[in-house]
Amino acid sequence: MLPFTYSRPRNIGEAATAGAQPGTEFIAGGTDLLPLLKEGVRRANRLVDINDLPLGGIRHEAAGVRLGALTRMSDAADDERLRRDYPAVVEALLAGASPQLRNLATVGGNLLQHTRCLYFHDAAMPCNKRQPGSGCPAWDGQNRGNAILGGSRACIATHASDLAVALVALEARVVLGARHGEREVPLADFHRLPGDTPQIETVLEPGEVITAIFVPAAPYSRRSTYVKLRDRASFEWALTSAAAALDLAGDTIRQARVAVGGVATKPWRLPKVEEALAGARADRSIFHAAAELAAQGAEPRQFNAFKVELMKRAIVRALADAGSLA
């Protein structure tokens, strides 16, 4: 870890100014950043602690819920209304990290967490995301955890967040703050595909911070769920996950929202699956048929080919679970 200066600004303007300087990292919970700094995966000579910014709190409104970016994962997971109105979000929060990590980590930081690609985390290895132009050893290497969707020859690193998968299914938007005001971006557009520049992961401009996450209240929000598959029963990133939300009229699906995690380079919404479900009957054969569409364009590698099938089955399970919710 390089030595760094430390500052703790009290407003967004100050934070944005400080954060725009090269070599600067914002720190909130620190659960993602500190291990990366310790292992030399990321380098910073300035840390800007944003915990004094007024970005906490959960505000329920008629149109939806606004989660302040600095809301701790544990506090969000504890919120009764969030659990009732957006169950997939709380399930994803509780499936992510350990209780002690959730006490430190923020919901804003969670969206910005880095991939678990084994090569990204070993600073002695080539990795285009860490060291642009150095190559992608995961392509022909230990890629069981890597993406089958959204990858490029330069990078097949999986996006690691559970929360983001649930949020992208529920059409959440992120609010970004900078020196001169705020802008809102659909979460689906917030993360970038790796393409040739896997080191650029989001649309954040230098100095810009996530100030809030807004989840709209939609007819399907309450009937939403998050299914996470992994090797261990707990405390592990997703091998494959699926978030599903259904708006039902009797047996008929008015509209559906589906996203998957652990399989793609960003939180991966599945509009074609959703279209196939809209207007159809909520039964397993329909779910199966719709889930088949999820794998379109999938590009599996040697050790992650099973995710094609596993992803479809996870979607079916999530839809079935959502369908059976009261």
């Binding site: 678990r116 084994l118 090569y119 985390h121 070993d122 290895m125 290497g141 230990q142 955890g145 090797d231 261990r232 029963a233 707990s234 405390f235 592990e236 990133w237």
Partner: peptide
């Protein structure tokens, strides 16, 4: 490559 306790998985509770 999985030289960590997040990637070399020992059982949890």
């Amino acid at each position: 490559m999985n030289a960590s306790l997040a990637d070399y998985l020992v059982p949890v509770n």
